[in-house]
Write a protein that binds this DNA or RNA. Structure first.
Lengths: 196, 196
DNA sequence: GACAAAATCAGAACGAGTCTAGTTTTGCAA
DNA sequence: TTGCAAAACTAGACTCGTTCTGATTTTGTC
């Protein structure tokens, strides 16, 4: 496995990471050039000079995962946003700020990110996958909310809130003014869960 | 097209409907016997004595659609539930009652439905498709909500509510006490949209 | 240098879904 | 009744994502 800040990644891990990166890079390049649906995994594997089987060994979640972060990474940032929120900020405000700073809601992103976000936004398969990955964080976010609310186990109410929160970016992205829709949604959620 | 209460469906329409029904029946039977994932569309087509191409001509939305109603039908019942709600009942209460009487939340269903609901509930692909079909009703439900709220066009707020409402059955079905979770969700939504 | 684990490989196989090009059935009208 | 166009249906080839098999190479370690 790739050592996250361990003694020093050996040659094996470096090569593995390089292969993975080559696949991700090739995928992004081809998707941007020709559109997600017009690129086959075979072409991506060839561009990265690997076998198709290797591609799926690195990205078992499939073609979409080649350019989208998994729930692990997302959950990390989400956790940080909640746990390290400024003193006096409500959980829901922190979550609102977290999403407002991300992909589709922040216009001040470096071009490198921008093109990627636009690609996802205009590709239904990718957007659906992104939503799924967020929603997969529901149980963990519910735990986080329980922690913030000072209870041991998340109950129905917190699971419902977690789901609504994670559903919101998807929903808001379909509206003409994405940022306004996001704000509107969080305003209502704060009414429904006044203590969070 | 199948005439819905027109003069009298001719032979052609009757045969077409029969083929469609044969496909749906064969699919349900095989899914129940061996599980959704262990049945191929080829087997279904053979059991219904049709070609695979015919199967997809009748169900272009794919394998899942063989046993799940499309948004058209769902929307009809949803519309009725909202428009014909008893005097003095809020829209959200009507929607709550509507879902509480359906599939996963009502234990008093005839066996014929019960087995189907259980199949959907225990098959991720089917459950995901069912959610999608509900969520596809979002724009229409937002219109309905606008109508009930006495405004011309649904704004962000109503689209958000529509989405949360349609997301709720899926969400609640994953909780240990589905009915309780459904009620909990609607209770919060009523706080967030007190006028509906 | 030997050996096991991990990474990679080519290619076959599978299932969903699309496409093509042709055949049969049906409704309708001359 | 016949003629004809539209609709329904068909077999089979094809694409694409994904999995499987079984082998080969690369790497870390002893």
């Amino acid at each position: 496995m790739v050592t996250t800040r361990g003694p020093a990644p050996g040659r094996r891990d470096r090569k593995k990471a390089a292969t993975r990166q080559a696949l991700a890079d090739a995928a992004l390049k081809l998707f941007l050039e020709r559109g997600y649906d017009n690129v086959t995994v075979k072409e991506i594997a060839e561009a990265a000079d690997t076998a198709i089987a290797t591609l799926f060994a690195h990205f078992p979640a499939g073609k979409e995962a080649l350019i989208l972060a998994d729930s692990g990474e997302r959950l990390e940032s989400l956790t940080a946003a909640v746990r390290e929120r400024p003193e006096g900020t409500s959980v829901l405000d922190a979550l609102h700020a977290f999403f407002a700073a991300r992909g589709p809601f922040n216009d001040n992103l470096p071009d490198e990110y921008r093109v990627r976000v636009d690609l996802v936004l205009r590709t239904p398969a990718l957007w659906a996958y992104a939503r799924k990955v967020w929603v997969d964080c529901q149980p963990s976010l519910a735990e986080l909310l329980a922690e913030a609310a000072g209870v041991d186990e998340p109950d129905d109410s917190l699971h419902v809130l977690a789901r609504y929160v994670l559903e919101t970016p998807d929903l808001a992205s379909y509206r003409p003014d994405r940022r306004a829709a996001l704000a509107e949604a969080f305003a209502h959620l704060k009414q429904g869960w006044p203590h969070l």
